[in-house]
Nucleic acid binder design. Sequence first.
DNA 1: CGTTCAGTTGAGTTGCTTCAACCCGTGTGG
DNA 2: CCACACGGGTTGAAGCAACTCAACTGAACG
Lengths: 228, 228
Amino acid sequence: MLKTYSMFDDILQRDQHAVAKGTILKSEGEESHSRMYVAGGWLAASKSLEDGEQQIIEFILPGETYDPTATDGKTSFLQIEALCDAVIVSIDKTSWAQLLRQDPELRKSERQREIAAQARQSERMLRLGRASAETRIAYVLIELCIRVSRQGTGFDSEFHVPFGQQQLGDFTGLSSVHVCRTLRRLNRAGVIRTGDHMDILIKDQHALAELAQVDIAALRDEITTDAA
Amino acid sequence: MLKTYSMFDDILQRDQHAVAKGTILKSEGEESHSRMYVAGGWLAASKSLEDGEQQIIEFILPGETYDPTATDGKTSFLQIEALCDAVIVSIDKTSWAQLLRQDPELRKSERQREIAAQARQSERMLRLGRASAETRIAYVLIELCIRVSRQGTGFDSEFHVPFGQQQLGDFTGLSSVHVCRTLRRLNRAGVIRTGDHMDILIKDQHALAELAQVDIAALRDEITTDAA
DNA sequence: CGTTCAGTTGAGTTGCTTCAACCCGTGTGG
DNA sequence: CCACACGGGTTGAAGCAACTCAACTGAACG
């Protein structure tokens, strides 16, 4: 992670720019010719139905890159939005190709990241299609916790996510009302404790993993790129 | 497609082998060191919850390749099953890397296929999380129709899928009973006609697209790799 | 000619949604 | 400093879409 970061140093100097919370960096169907590197802040990649229903497909965290360019090489197939104030570097297609060519390490680590993203997405689809609200919420809390506390061996058990229950619903395919109810139930059961502004404390990791129907250690290996 | 196919000719001669319908080619967590090329038949890539609920993540059609190997480089993160009698070629990691190195065309077309798969998956997640049973079923019929009739400009409007309503449910996150009801409703409304053994005839393409909340032409470009 | 398996249909249940009210912390203008 | 509006979270009540369970049909097959 840190190693990869340093590879962008020269680009970081030149092309990084700050974006405010709520900024839409790319819309569905809009022109797209570049990969974005997130130097700070969280992004959400989402799709919407005509009736306005939104589904968040992926969160993009600091240190990760993402390219929403479709097969036509010209347009974005999903919408990218800043969930909080963020710092983004745009790397155009040819520069990116050059970076990959120059640096086999980068190529390999980006490949790993793609596989990890694919594994995460599969886990989510499974629960989106087949699991209860409780399982979906428990799972997403664990996934986010792992991704946030990627440094160190740790499952930090306490973390913060820079968005609200509405977005958690858009990610898990639930209404914000039901997200709220489910979170409250987990609170009352003593499994988690939620603080102000989406601070999450996992009080009973074992119980949460049970609810999420997941093995935390195995999941960490699967959805993470850090060699242990 | 045909062009890509010819690239595998030498390998096809050597290493292809037939598998019977229902064969599990890879299980979750099982050893996996190779990419598979599907010379004939359909595969399903799926994940299961502990309680046995299954979600099909992707169908793999003839002419496509797939590699379920996780970030550890050793195990598969999902299950691969033959939906009908099929012919598979296993290409080990190093051979595949060599093929990609030798042939920039192959590398490019595989990259395109990955992007198309990602776009399809996003469309499905959107509907899995946010759309009604009717929309999900309508969408999957259109997606499959496009993928099946990829040759030619055509939306063939009539096609066959080699699996039952149960699997359609596992793909759309619905019970087989509800798949049946929804299909019947579409039949009665005159939008489609279903024949024996999952033969599908799309009678009213426009109405189906409306239900699926999708623009067929745009979708074809997005989820397909054939330059028009 | 019985068995099996996929699809079909009805009846009853339930988990999640929608709608609506209310609370509370924050920002804002008189 | 208070009044007010505003947005996010919380809770209750009511509705409904999809689920489960169970029975039946019909085609395929030995």
